[in-house]
Design a protein around this nucleic acid. Structure first.
Length: 805
RNA sequence: GCCGGUGUGGCGGAAUGGCAGACGCGCCAGACUCAAAAUCUGGUAAUGGCAACAUUGUACGAGUUCAAGUCUCGUCACCGGCACCA
């Protein structure tokens, strides 16, 4: 009899052996076929690992282990995205240096990950807060600065009132800070920006050539928000100036009955003297400025605005004078900050026109424009539009654009919703921006030889109330000399956002100890692109977009060899609490992976998280479900006692099922269907129990198939049954297609589409013989008797259907 | 409002247009046990019937098909994302 299954005794043992034998080291033999599997590296928070973490980690660990058994040189690395606010806040509260906090958290995380038996390449571990790492983050930033992609500008930014820090648009959720949930207001500040908009088209086009799950592609497309339209100049009546607008519906130009400009539009100031209701305008502008984004969204239903009294615009297509209004439904940050309003065919303009009694002129027939804006572009023909009359919308668009271009008053134009990336943070725990400001030379990069620009030790990590980084208080550090002219200069005191370090970490893994380059050409050439990258949906428009941008920038400099960093991107679903709600301390439904490992073992946790349901969907935790998986592993463990030592290969009675299982498990692992792969193995084990016997060959194949899911236990059994090598050194089993096919199958016999009986037939069986067998079944006979057979459908190996009348 | 996703037993969930409910949980019964737990074996969609069997059944309503959870059209509910983007 075998020993009882005791994960406690075997899991640590094998983790140590794997470490010692460097079992999962990614090799430097660049002639072997490679496979690069990547999971998003975690932020090492003080709370430690959550049961949500192991889901994606286990999934790609399975892929990595399987690929190794299939002969690939596999890179499956892990590291730490360790800069960030929670660490800094913890440091402030407890007066411990963030570096120390990070060190402790990383140690804890690493221990937890190790206890789960992942086959990470620990010798390639990276940490974004390591100066040897952020040296290259700074280096890449300087490249962007050199190429004009990093610039400083005064602009209204999203300011978190609680974190006292500027946020990127992507970090503002429903008008509140993504991190702390406090209100975000607009504040004009001088900020470093990265010109991600310069890559908008490349980021869009790149999506065509990669294998991302559809919803990720869609979200990125929506976020970039490309729209094609026209830019048109409207002359200001009696002035030299004109008002430039952007529209996606140039075809409706004849229906423009007024114009709206955003409250911040510079034209308002320019004609201050001529505006009769200046006080009213100023008052409106002030109210609009005071509104936070949150309020603006909340109040979005009701339109407000003020007419600019004293200025008029001229509609270029018909020369009519139309009034100009200001309203905060027009944003300065999109398009030109001014629109032509066509109330008949735009809902917002319609609302506005109704409220202020402005004329509504129909120019596309097909709706009741006095009742509701008619926005359909697929049906309807142009009316009241002179030379456009009778055309369909698409034709009219083309015609009017060429007309505008001919007359020199407008042209085709593409706009994006994507904004440039606010790249500075007024915080301590981030990469220092390696620039100095010289009175004479402006912003000057520090020389490459001085990288990394180390984060200096400060007395207090608290951000200052005037919104400056704590680094600003360090006069010794701040005051320096200009690398260019040698004169007096001051260092930039803002730091980079958390997204900086994670924008290129996948490149560093290919060559993590390189001191001369961020990674060698050879390493990049061999390992890139990442073959499979899995991560959370919440990073689709943040990390995933940012890192594609950095990668494409490096590609344009010839520093990386692939256009896209990630060949394939998938996303895992969340693990919810037992009550089906999101796990949180306040709900009291948090499950700690350490407890599960202690009670059931890492292999059980891994198996359970893969068996819990479809990988991409969220799933609720179930302690009973965990027990079921432990039971399955116990059943596999006890198969040791049923092994028939005499037979090596597969038994006759199970040969087909063995080949089928190998096929199913191999395919399901690749397509993220871990739950059905495990179900297939369970089913196979049930079959062994039914027969109360398993051949050695069958058992060994099962162990290898199960190894990626439950590596410790399978490794232990492998040793117990006397195998000399490790299971991780063995080879993934092959199946033969023809052996997966059963020669005798059970098919359903239907009468008028209803199942009446099942019969056993061979795959090649002819219809006559099938019919004969079918008619022997009483239920079939009964259903057919005294009726006329109209039609018979027989599909070999599938179905036999008799249609009667 | 727009975009995406989901809807199947008591529960988690399976099903290239071809026997709906694989596999697991729970539950019921049997074996083992003095007993319980653990383990093993069998059963388990609903309704009716002693039964064999019959009927119904994949959110709802139509449709295509010999055959629909799966395809088409429409409706509803829930979840997620975006949202005055001209």
């Amino acid at each position: 009899m075998s020993q009882a299954y005791s994960p406690k005794d075997i899991e640590k043992k094998w983790q140590d052996i794997w470490d010692e034998e460097k079992a999962f080291r990614a090799g430097e033999d660049y002639n072997k076929p490679k496979y690069y599997a990547l999971v998003e590296f975690p932020y090492p928070s003080g709370q430690g690992l959550h049961v949500g973490h192991p889901r994606p980690y286990t999934a790609l660990d399975i892929i990595a282990r399987k690929k190794r058994l299939q002969g690939y040189n596999v890179l499956y690395p892990m590291g730490w995205d360790a800069f960030g606010l929670p660490t800094e806040n913890y440091a402030i509260k407890n007066k411990i240096h963030p570096e120390v906090v990070t060190k402790n958290n990383v140690a804890h995380f690493k221990e937890q990950l190790k206890s789960l038996g992942y086959s990470f390449n620990w010798d390639r571990e990276v940490n974004t807060t390591d100066p040897e790492y952020y040296k290259w983050t700074q280096w890449i930033f300087l490249k962007m600065f050199e190429k004009g992609l990093a610039y400083k500008t005064e602009m209204p930014i999203n300011w978190c009132t609680s974190c006292k820090v500027g946020l990127a648009n992507e970090e503002v959720v429903n008008g509140v800070c993504e991190r702390c949930g406090n209100e975000v207001v607009r504040k004009v500040k001088s900020q470093w920006m990265l010109k991600i908009t310069a890559y908008a088209d490349k980021l869009l086009e790149g999506l065509e050539e990669v294998d991302y799950i559809e919803k990720v592609k869609t979200s990125q497309r929506n976020w970039i928000g490309r729209s094609v339209g026209a830019e048109v100049d409207f002359k200001i009546a009696g002035k030299e100036d004109s008002l430039k607008i952007f529209t996606t519906r140039p075809d409706t130009l004849f229906g423009a009955t007024y114009m709206v400009i955003s409250p911040e539009h510079p034209l308002v100031d320019k004609y201050k003297e001529e505006i009769k209701n200046w006080n009213e305008i100023i008052a409106y502008r002030e109210t609009a400025a005071k509104k936070s984004d949150f309020e603006r969204t909340e109040l979005a239903k009701e339109k407000t605005g003020v007419m600019v009294d004293g200025l008029c615009a001229v509609n270029p297509v018909n020369g009519k004078e139309i009034p100009i209004w200001i309203s905060d439904y027009v944003l300065m940050s999109y398009g030109t900050g001014a629109i032509m309003a066509v109330p008949a065919h735009d809902e917002r303009d319609w609302d506005f026109a109704k409220k202020f009694g402005l004329p509504i002129i129909e120019v596309v027939a097909g709706g009741e424009v006095q009742e509701k804006a008619f926005t359909d572009v697929a049906t309807g023909k142009l009316v009241n539009s002179d030379f456009l009359d009778g055309l369909e919308v698409a034709e009219a668009k083309k015609k009017i654009i060429s007309w505008l271009e001919e007359k020199g008053i407008g042209k085709q134009k593409v706009n994006y919703k994507l904004r440039d990336w606010v790249f500075s943070r007024q915080r301590y725990w981030g990469e220092p921006i390696p620039l100095v400001k010289c009175e004479k030379c402006g912003y000057v990069p520090i020389p490459e030889s001085e990288l990394p620009l180390m984060l200096p030790k400060v007395d207090s990590y608290m951000p200052t109330d005037n919104g400056e980084s704590p680094l600003a208080a360090m006069t010794d550090w701040v005051n320096t000399t200009c690398p260019c002219c040698g004169g007096k200069a001051k260092r930039e005191t803002d730091t980079m956002p958390q997204w900086a370090g994670s924008s290129w970490y996948f490149l560093r893994y290919t060559d993590p100890h390189n001191t001369k380059e961020f990674a060698s050409k050879e390493a990049l050439n061999y390992w890139m692109p990442v073959d499979w990258y899995n991560g959370g949906m919440e990073h689709t428009t943040l990390h995933l977009l940012y890192s594609r941008f950095w990668h494409k920038f490096l590609y344009d400099l010839g520093l990386v060899t692939t256009k896209e960093p990630y060949q394939k991107r998938t996303s895992h679903g969340m693990i919810l609490g037992e009550n089906g709600e999101k796990m949180s301390k306040s709900r009291g439904n948090v499950v700690n992976p350490d407890d599960i490992v202690a009670e059931f073992g890492a292999d059980t946790l891994r198996t359970y998280e893969m068996f819990i349901g479809a990988f991409e969907l969220s799933a609720a935790w179930s302690k009973e479900g965990v027990k079921g998986c432990r039971r399955f592993l116990e059943r596999v463990w006890k198969l040791q006692d049923m092994v028939d030592e005499k037979e090596e290969g597969y038994s006759k009675e199970l040969e087909t099922k063995m080949h089928q299982t190998i096929k199913k498990v191999s395919q399901d692992f690749e397509s993220l269907k871990f739950n059905t792969a495990i179900a297939a193995m369970m089913s196979l084990v049930n079959e062994f129990y039914r027969l109360n016997r398993v051949t050695k060959g069958e058992f060994k194949s099962l162990l290898i198939l199960l190894n990626p899911v439950a590596p410790h236990m399978t490794e232990e059994i492998w040793q117990i049954i006397g195998e000399k090598e490790r299971i991780y050194q063995t080879v993934w089993p092959e199946y033969e297609e023809e052996k997966t096919i059963e020669n005798e199958v059970e098919i359903a016999v239907q009468v008028n589409g209803k199942v009446k009986a099942t019969i056993k037939v061979t795959l090649e069986e002819e219809q006559d013989s099938v019919k004969e067998k079918a008619m022997q079944a009483a239920s079939v006979k009964g259903a057919v008797e005294n009726k006329t057979i109209v039609k018979e459908i027989y599909i070999k190996g599938k179905i036999y259907n008799i249609v009667v009348k």
